[in-house]
Every structure is written in C-alpha cells, then in structure tokens.
Amino acid sequence: MTDNNNQNERREYFRIKNWIIINFEKIDEDQDNQDLDDFGFKSSPRISLLQELSRLETENQNYLGSLTDKQSQLGNYLINMNKKMELLTRFVIESLSGNKDELREVDISGGGIRFKSVDPHPIDQLLKLEIVLVPECVGLLAHGRVVDCKPIEGTPHHEIALVFIKLREADRDAIVRHVFKIQSEQLRSQRPDNNDSTR
C-alpha cells in the first residue's frame, strides 16, 4: 500500500518542460470555495468544447471495447469517426487560438505548474487556470495557489510557480499522461542515430 502511494506521488509530481496554452486570472477565497463542476464564472467556449469532446471520446472508447469480432466493420467505422473528431478538434483549437501569447513554455506536473508572466503575483494568491495540453487538445480547469514568484534577470518577466489546489482527478491523469508522452518523445529524439542504413 505504501509502495503504491509512493509511486502515485512520483507520477503526480514528475515534471517536464513543454509548450501549452494557458490563461489565468486572479480569484478570491469565495470563488475558490465553489466546486469545479459549478464554476461561478463560465469557462471559455474553447475549454467547454474540448471537455465535451473529451467526454464523447471516452464514451466512444467504451463502446469500441464492447464490440465483438463480428462487429469489426462497425468498430472500424467508429475508429475512423474518432480520428475525424480528433482532426476537427485540432482545427478548432487553431481557429480559437488567435492570441499567440497564449502559448507558453511551462514546467508542469500533476501537482502544479511553473510559467513566466509579465505581472508578478504575491505568494498565496489564488489563480483560476484554463489549460490546453498540446498536441492532445485536452482542455483543463484548475485553481492554483502561488508558492513562488521571482523576477527573471534581464527581462520584464517573473517566474510564477503554483500548486494545484483544485483539479479534477481525470484532469490530473491527463496531465500525467501528457508528461510521460512528452518525456518519451524527448528521450527517443536524444537517442544516437542508428547506423544500420550505412551498412
């Protein structure tokens, strides 16, 4: 049991640098007391759309898993429809992402996030975050608490570090999957070239 807990903690707090879309704004304690599924404020159309698409994709995967071999043609059709939906999702993201400043290099894990900001934020400031993981096009909502803020020498920016204080477990799992996917891709790219082609 302890080993499982330690493994979960390692997965949750394993970090990686990556470029994602992130928007944030200050909130107060009253707003933080609201349930994430409630949200006294409305999430952006992009996040709402991505979350609905993610829900539909999860349902589709469940349906595919229940198909028998005799229903393979229907399964192939649903797989193609799912791929089509993924392509449409990426197109929508590109269409809704007119502000290039949204794409930021971050240090992210299931436990928190670190990023650059022109505006400083005091320790313990609460922020509402809307995050889009790229290239998966997964939209997330979270509340974070500032735990560190320091100026970056020679620039007008500050490095802001937050811990997630409110995040759906499904969204945390999506971040963990994203982190391991990016790490795997980076490790593959760092491997020395195979010289088989020169033989």
Rank of each mutant, 00 (worst) to 15 (best):
E159C: 14
R90Q: 15
K17Y: 11
E59V: 10
D35I: 02
V134W: 09
L36K: 00
I22N: 00
S95E: 11
A174Q: 02
D35S: 05
P45C: 06
N6C: 07
F164A: 09
D69H: 10
I165G: 02
V147I: 14
Y13L: 01
N82G: 03
L167C: 02
L96G: 02
K26V: 06
N6G: 01
I27H: 07
C137N: 04
P122I: 08
N194Y: 11
D30I: 05
Q7V: 02
M1W: 10
P120I: 10
Q61H: 14
V179W: 08
I22Q: 00
N194L: 13
Q73L: 09
D35Q: 03
V179E: 05
K166E: 08
N18P: 02
R15Y: 08
H178S: 04
E130I: 02
K150Y: 10
L103V: 08
P135C: 10
K26D: 04
A142L: 06
R15P: 03
L96A: 09
I182F: 11
G65C: 00
N4F: 14
D69S: 12
E94P: 01
Q34H: 07
C137I: 09
G110A: 10
P122C: 09
Q61G: 02
N60H: 00
V179P: 05
M81P: 00
Q125N: 13
E12W: 06
D38Q: 06
R10L: 13
V106C: 06
S95L: 15
F115N: 08
Y13S: 06
N62D: 04
H178W: 03
I165L: 05
P122F: 13
G139Y: 12
K100T: 12
K70V: 08
R145T: 13
D171Y: 07
F115I: 11
S54W: 06
S43A: 04
E25W: 13
I165Y: 14
E57C: 07
L50S: 06
Q51T: 04
L67M: 14
K116C: 10
K100M: 12
D124P: 02
H143V: 13
S43E: 07
F14K: 05
E169M: 11
V163E: 15
L36M: 03
Q183Y: 09
E159S: 14
N5F: 15
R10G: 00
E9A: 15
I20Q: 01
R11L: 13
L74N: 04
H121I: 15
P45R: 13
D148N: 11
R188V: 12
F91N: 06
H158D: 03
S197W: 15
D107E: 11
